[in-house]
Amino acid sequence: MLTRRRFLSGSAALAVSCGSSANAFAFEDALGNEIVLPNLPRRVITINSAMIESVFAIGAGQQVVGVGGKVMHPPEAFGLPSVGGAVGYSAEAVLALKPELVVMAVSTSAAAQLTRPMKAMNVPVFLASYSDFPSILRYIGLLGPALGRSQQAEQLVQNMQAQTVQLRQRLQDRPRLRVFLETGAAGNAAFQTVRRGHYANDSIYFAGGENVFSDLRGPKQVTVEGIAAADPDKIVVLTSDPNWTSQTIAQRPGWHVLRAVREGNVVVLPRSFMLVPGPRQAKAISILAHAIHPEAFAQ
């Protein structure tokens, strides 16, 4: 952290000394690092789906010259040159695209592999970080000034907030249902879930539910027994397996003991849509609300 700040203040001084300070383009990233560029970055490399979706959602897609990781949305990002993926990221591929800014999320393998080389090559890096839902809004808000799209970013954040408010109004007469959200399954053994601090925990809340395991201690995995003790009203299963249905879930060994299963309150949703911490999370919350309170959307 110390070295990064020293580097950044150095580069700021450089920017000031070689360009006119009036034209300097300054912003900070989600870690609070001050970044000063001579101009608005027009060659941007964006890595990982959440970042790509965010940059395109604030209208900065035109500035993106390269992407990394799996590109799921939007379609305009599909054809862009890639600088790597899960198997590894190439600093050379990044540099070859002559980037003026690299946008990555902390705690991704991309950040681990690229931050240091970029620093060495004096390529500025915008690091986003996310955990809960507000943190997603926060980094999107910070991306605006960084890419010269402050207004659009503000607008997007407001829209996302408005959608959650709208949902809350729509669901205000509904009882808050207790929800078990399964984010992964090691066969039929342990089932992974989320707790407080994860945006999906907030998403359940905005969707009119309450995560039964928001206060989970220890490993973020539970057994049928744990689920039965928590006795959720709704079970939402996120999976990438297109063959899964609520029937698949009901037939798991021992799951018939769960009240939600017996009452048919099991919903299976695509993981790839629900667990991307970007602008589409607002849509994910809406889908979750439909899953948790279908009757509220019946008319």
Binding site: A50, G85, G184, A190, S272
Partner: peptide
């Protein structure tokens, strides 16, 4: 490791894979 890396993104749960590797009783019944 290669399979895990290639397939790893938001669409699959690496946590589930890790969980299996650390030992998981598949609960055969009946």
């Amino acid at each position: 490791s290669m399979t895990t890396l290639v397939l790893s993104d938001e669409t699959v749960s690496l946590q589930a894979m890790l969980s299996w590797t650390l030992g998981s009783l598949q609960t055969p019944m009946g």
